[in-house]
Nucleic acid binder design. Structure first.
Length: 569
RNA sequence: CGGGACGUGGCGCAGUUUGGUAGCGCGCAGCGUUCGGGACGCUGAGGUCGCGGGUUCAAAUCCCGCCGUCCCGACCA
């Protein structure tokens, strides 16, 4: 490709509406352009990188035995109404909906369980046909409440979604394991640094699922990882090791005045006690009945964990009116002396002898409150959000928290969709059984953004070889020198003949502009052919990712480039 | 959905407070000089100032409504 013909105009300044590094760079380097919020055009360079990512995903899916198909983007509402997700998505306003000329309700596909499940049920009727794993690579539509950071969270995005259908849970586990391995190969090949983390199983409970998290500053997801072993989990799902023996001695109960001090900060500062010694009592209603959740004052309650612990009950935080109804005083609630209130406490509540907590009396707190003596906990659960430095649940060493981008998600669905959609097969004993399903997603366009986040610096993008739109750029440093042009053309042609994807920067521009654009666009290898080098019989090779430079004798430039490429990841 | 900010040539911005001929830098076109890390000079093209209404002799600027975009949060996966 000749740069002078390439549909790519780089920008010196990042557009004002881009903030994330990958977003700024992909726009500046002419990979993408925004059309409307969360919807982007892929320019020739961006499309090449997207297609390469897609090809890697496709190869690994095929290698894992999955079969590619292509389902429609425009979907009927009926199957979604059966599973209840039409209503759910409508409530979240996540589905782009439309109507055809007959007034039929349609939606743009946000995911395809409702489509693939009836399809398989209609085609395959026997256990003999199973297992089967189907996937597609296709544009998905989700009318996100807040699209952000360019390709990291867009409303139209390229996704690989796979669906496995097994006869039983054993089969599902095999299908699942094979997908997880395929995912690892995909992300390895894309040059991503990532962790496989345990994710929140959700309210269904028991479902195994993993997220593939690529660490990045701009990541939206917080995840916990052990500094020693390989434990890693989404913060929502993470646990820490349970605390040890009780600290501190018993004390006598005493009610003290704490005028207007309704917060942890207010109370502990007023009384001069450590937030660790305060017992936070958070009031909820579960199916109409009051529940108190207890966590130490220096801890945040993880509502997801609470919901899971109390499932299938509907958990709702109390509003001001509810406090009155249940005879509680907001800001001064304590677990002692409360009648008819279920008390759920974090494990850490066991680790301290005496607590300061609300006195259930306006502007008063009680000190010396002892678990077991002054109040009775109904259930101990893991309720607190993991904090930096907590002990690992596996090895006990320190945990740390990082930000990351979710590039993939694998899920053991079970029979949730097949039962709802009455998708069954006939088993060996003649009985009708619902398919045991798994679903597996990779955000292909998001992988591009994640790779840009992980492989870039202040000068621009620095693609891993596998994702670069072109492997090599040959820079004509002095366009007015015939020998320079001839040598550059020769190298360009030779590389092309050897199957290397190469750009010849033949523009009439100052050398500095070309060097800077080459850095910005992130081609892994740069070859500079100029007067200076010609004089000494060499061309300059530069490795973009490290900045390492070397001279290659002119006759052997092509071989030197091939060798350098070979050595790159 | 709650909070905040912004909308002026392709990109980045000034001008709005105090209404009075629409500006700057980059980029783009032509000519010349330059030429190994974003060169210089001269000349030039390019703008319904987001849209609609209102106030006024006069609106980028003041008022009302709408639309769009981004950021924080909620939500989502």
């Amino acid at each position: 490709m000749r740069f002078s013909r390439l549909f790519a105009r780089t920008l010196r300044d990042a557009p004002a509406d881009a903030e994330a590094p990958s977003h700024q760079l992909l726009v500046r380097a002419a990979y993408i352009r925004q059309l409307i919020s969360g919807i982007y055009t892929f320019l020739p360079l961006g499309l090449k990188t997207l297609r390469k990512t897609e090809a890697i995903v496709r190869e690994e899916m095929n290698a894992a035995g999955a079969q590619e198909l292509l389902m429609p983007i425009v979907l009927p509402s009926e199957p979604w109404k059966i599973t209840g997700r039409w209503q759910a998505y409508a409530a979240e306003q996540l589905m782009f909906t439309l109507k055809d000329r007959a007034g039929r309700e349609l939606g743009l596909g946000p995911t395809h369980e409702e489509i693939v499940t009836p399809l398989v049920a209609a085609e395959f009727e026997s256990y003999r046909d199973l297992p089967v794993n189907l996937y597609q690579i296709q544009w998905k539509y989700r009318d996100e409440a807040r699209p952000r950071s360019g390709l990291l969270r867009s409303r139209e995005f390229l996704m690989k979604d796979a669906y496995s259908f097994d006869r039983d849970v054993e089969g599902l586990k095999e299908s699942y394991a094979s997908m997880v391995e395929a995912y690892k190969r995909v992300f390895d090949r894309c040059g991503l640094t990532y962790r496989v983390v345990e994710a929140d199983p959700g309210l269904i409970g028991g479902d195994v699922n993993h997220e593939f998290m690529a660490p990045a500053e701009v990541g939206e997801d917080l995840f916990v990882r052990c500094t020693n072993c390989d434990y890693a989990a989404n913060l929502e799902a993470a646990s820490a090791a349970e605390p040890g023996a009780r600290e501190g001695g018993q004390e006598d109960l005493a009610v003290v005045e704490t005028p207007g001090r309704a917060t942890v900060k207010g109370v502990t500062e007023f009384l001069g006690v450590d937030p660790k010694a305060l017992l936070k009592s958070l009031a909820f209603e579960v199916d109409g009945k009051p529940v108190l959740a207890l966590v130490p004052g220096d801890r945040e309650l993880n509502e997801t964990k609470l919901r899971r612990a109390l499932a299938p009950g509907e958990v709702r935080m109390l509003d001001d009116d509810d406090f009155q109804k249940h005879g509680m005083i907001k800001g001064f609630v304590g677990p002692q002396d409360l009648e008819g209130v279920q008390i759920v406490a974090d494990h850490r509540v066991r680790s301290r002898a005496a607590w300061v907590t609300g006195a259930n009396k306006l502007d008063h707190h009680t000190t010396g409150v002892v678990d077991g003596r002054d109040f009775a906990v109904d259930r101990y659960e893991d309720l607190a959000t993991v904090a930096e430095g907590d002990p690992c649940p596996r090895c006990g060493r320190s945990l740390e928290i990082g930000r990351s981008i979710e590039v993939g998600h694998t899920f053991q669905l079970g029979t949730r969709y097949s039962e709802a959609l009455k998708a069954t097969f006939v088993d060996e004993d003649g009985s009708e059984q619902p398919f045991v399903m798994g679903c597996y997603g990779i955000g292909v366009s998001r992988v591009v953004a994640a790779a840009a986040e992980q492989h870039s610096d202040d000068k621009g993008l620095a693609w891993p070889k596998a994702l670069a739109p072109y492997q090599v750029v040959v820079i004509v440093v002095n366009g007015d020198d015939e020998r320079v042009v001839a040598e550059a053309e020769r190298v360009y042609t030779e590389l092309g003949a050897r199957g290397v994807e190469v750009v010849l920067d033949d523009r009439e521009a100052a050398a500095g502009v070309k060097f800077n654009d080459a850095d910005l666009m992130g081609f892994p290898v740069q070859v500079a052919v100029g007067k200076r080098g010609i004089k000494s019989g060499t061309a300059d090779l530069k490795r973009r990712s490290t900045g390492d430079r070397s001279d290659a004798p002119l006759p052997g430039v092509t071989a030197a480039v091939l060798e350098l490429l070979e050595s790159l990841a």
